[in-house]
Design a protein around this nucleic acid. Structure first.
Lengths: 239, 239
DNA sequence: GCAAAAGTGTTGTGTCTACACCCATGT
DNA sequence: ACATGGGTGTAGACACAACACTTTTGC
């Protein structure tokens, strides 16, 4: 196995016969109205001290998804991950200074409510104003954020931001943070119910000390990714 | 470089220290109302004689996109490719019988009008009833077809199916084939013009021998992929 | 009663499909 | 004249945003 060369022999990529392969994850969650990304402080060269996305080398006989789950398990309780999907594979030979390295990035989501412990070298950072990131990780983070934003409007991916059951205004907070603009609770409820994504659990949340009408609890009908608005336009005729 | 082992030593994937990496392309076009995919007849084991997607090994110091373009150049005039985008990377250790092989698939599109010559071992096949394909290539083909179908409704990807300039009914034929259902020329024109994707060239196509009103020629305003319907729902307020 | 929070009713707008109708050309 | 293919006008359906209004709680 190639051990991580740390700048001892900065050979140009062309001299490497075969690329190494790493998996990375853009793990996002929404807290206090902002999207946060899980970052890790590198203790090795290259880019020692810089923040980076969690991940690492692909091991023999594992799939990319198994690999990223294994690496993530060292940073966060993987059971808290409500969704994981492949983003893309980056291959620019100059993306890593010391070796020819391919990187397959995943998007992971953590629902509100869950608050997994993370090791001391790992922390959540606001995705809007991240620290300087290693390699091409900032660009990958942006790609993850965009993917989430886009899918919120035509899939049920909201399930991955919400806990089992929730009130509409709790769900609204997740959408507001993830989309970056205001969303009315009124219309959010109507859109998601009309599309059959949400159903009432029948229970209610008791109001806080300042009063207010008790809120109905909802859940997502499915907690697996489904496309809910497949034809924005150019629908098949007669339907 | 690993030469293609042809079943001589079918070692389990776990014994390979590092994966090989190939790039593949799902190259699609629409002809006579059907989607066709470019396939190639394998002359080597494994899967000798089976049809397969074009592609091959990644070479040192090239990016994945350079790699797939290089391999495609052997099968088709790459200048005819109007669009190329990454689909996904497959990593199941059992996807190849003889080696541990990762595969990054691309989606390529060829516009109507262009009719590139292909070598004798390569041909266009209807994507609906393909021959038995090697490895996981049938599934990748399906993924490519789905990607095209989805993007037709919320991006300007139609430019990649159409030549420089075209009549609405020619464009309609491409959409009908790609979507697999009828599309009215009337509404197609209105949707694409309203969204600012199409503009008239000012020229007209002379009618054929059977008469008819001459058709206006259109072109796509941009021939690079753009998202044109970013918010199917949950638009930002006040806009 | 009053404030707070949740939820419903309703109106207006924009975008789409469907279909009737008009236009320009060849024979 | 009439067939053929292209294009416009228009009406209805639908989904959405916005906002006024009602409901249910705590104090």
């Amino acid at each position: 196995m190639t051990t991580s060369a740390h700048g001892v022999e900065p050979a140009p990529a062309a001299t490497w016969p075969a690329p190494t392969h790493v998996t990375l994850a853009v793990v996002l969650r929404v807290r206090e109205g902002r999207v946060q990304v899980l970052l890790w402080q590198r203790s090795e060269e290259p880019c020692r001290g810089r923040s980076a996305l969690p991940g690492g080398y692909l091991e023999p006989a594992e799939t990319l998804e198994q690999s990223i789950r294994r690496h993530l398990a060292q940073k966060v309780d993987v059971r808290e991950l409500s969704h994981l999907e492949q983003l893309e594979t980056r291959s620019d030979p100059s993306r890593h200074p010391d070796e020819w390295q391919l990187a397959t990035a995943y998007l992971g989501l953590v629902p509100s409510g869950a608050d997994p412990a993370v090791p001391s070298d790992t922390a959540w950072h606001p995705v809007d104003e991240p620290p300087v990131l290693a390699f091409d990780h900032e660009d990958l983070t942006l790609a993850g954020r965009e993917r989430l934003r886009a899918k919120l409007s035509y899939t049920n991916i909201g399930f991955a931001l919400a806990p089992e059951s929730f009130t509409i205004s709790e769900l609204r907070n997740q959408y507001v943070g993830a989309l970056g603009h205001d969303v009315s609770a009124t219309n959010l409820q109507r859109v998601l119910v009309r599309r059959g994504l949400l159903e009432e659990t029948g229970e209610r949340r008791e109001p806080g000390p300042s009063g207010g009408r008790p809120a109905a609890l909802y859940r997502f009908r499915s907690r697996r990714l489904e496309v809910t608005d497949p034809f924005a336009v150019l629908r098949p005729p007669g339907d």
